[in-house]
């Protein structure tokens, strides 16, 4: 893979995220969250900020990559990319990396606003790592989900359904409705729970336990496997099926 071509493609993706107003929407959402959090105090604030970062790095990642893929499908631009010297891996990775950069910046905006307005204690290294890993993983999953969506509405419904299914057990555990000890372990295979583990670590005194390392490795290895064995291998079939050549 030519590094300069990948960088060029990432730049192109970032420009299009701006042109298609995805960046504007994500920054508006970040500002809205900022305003909401400004009026929240105490314990609620302490739990709401990590939760918003979690939503941004997971569910919003699925939404953004889904909308990008929908635009591309609608405009048949993937067809024309197939007949350029760009490799499939470059086309896919440029979208995943560009969406991760874009999502990271919108999350960073929320964090910066709160560091400036409120006295928030965050471990910047851990939050940076957590947001990047969680976003990369969920963007890759979003890329895969987009292969099976016929239109934008179906895509939104699927993302909502997947999110709902994944969030319910974590929420039930968080509210002490699921009390059995094994849930603590079992829930870690839920990528949203794993993302929550690594994001929450940035808001606590440093205590990198096995759950943290497991979640981190799980998201990294899982993301690579999903990319290599599902996203990359199914890309050509998907691209050909939507091309009207």
């Amino acid at each position: 893979m030519k590094a300069n071509r990948l960088i060029y493609l990432i730049k192109g993706e970032l420009i299009r995220l701006h042109k298609y107003k995805v960046t504007t929407i994500s920054f508006l959402i970040a500002i809205i969250w900022g305003v909401v959090l400004y009026f929240v105090e105490g314990d609620i604030f302490n739990s709401l900020l990590p939760f918003l970062i979690l939503v941004d790095a997971t569910l919003m990642s699925l939404m953004y990559i889904g909308s990008v893929m929908f635009f591309e499908k609608k405009e048949s631009t993937i067809s024309t990319m197939l007949v350029t010297p760009a490799k499939h891996s470059e086309i896919i990775l440029s979208k995943i990396f560009a969406n991760t950069i874009h999502n990271f910046l919108s999350t960073a905006l929320i964090v910066i606003v709160f560091v400036l307005i409120k006295d928030v204690q965050i471990n910047y290294l851990l939050i940076t790592l957590a947001v990047i890993i969680a976003t990369l993983f969920h963007t890759t999953i979003g890329f895969l989900l987009s292969y099976y969506q016929k239109d934008f509405t179906t895509m939104l419904m699927t993302i909502m359904m997947v999110s709902f299914i994944l969030l319910i057990p974590s929420a039930l555990y968080a509210f002490n409705i699921l009390k059995a000890a094994f849930w603590e372990y079992l829930l870690l295979i839920n990528p949203i729970q794993a993302a929550s583990e690594i994001i929450n670590q940035a808001f606590k005194p440093i205590d990198l336990n096995w759950k943290y390392y497991f979640s981190l490795v799980y998201l990294i290895i899982g993301g690579i496997l999903v990319y290599k064995y599902l996203v990359l291998t199914k890309f050509k079939n998907y691209a050909v099926s939507i091309s009207g050549v």
Partner: peptide, 11 residues
């Protein structure tokens, strides 16, 4: 390659 349908970024 020139496809029959438009294949450009509309925005």
């Amino acid at each position: 390659v020139s496809f029959e349908m438009p294949i450009h970024f509309s925005k």
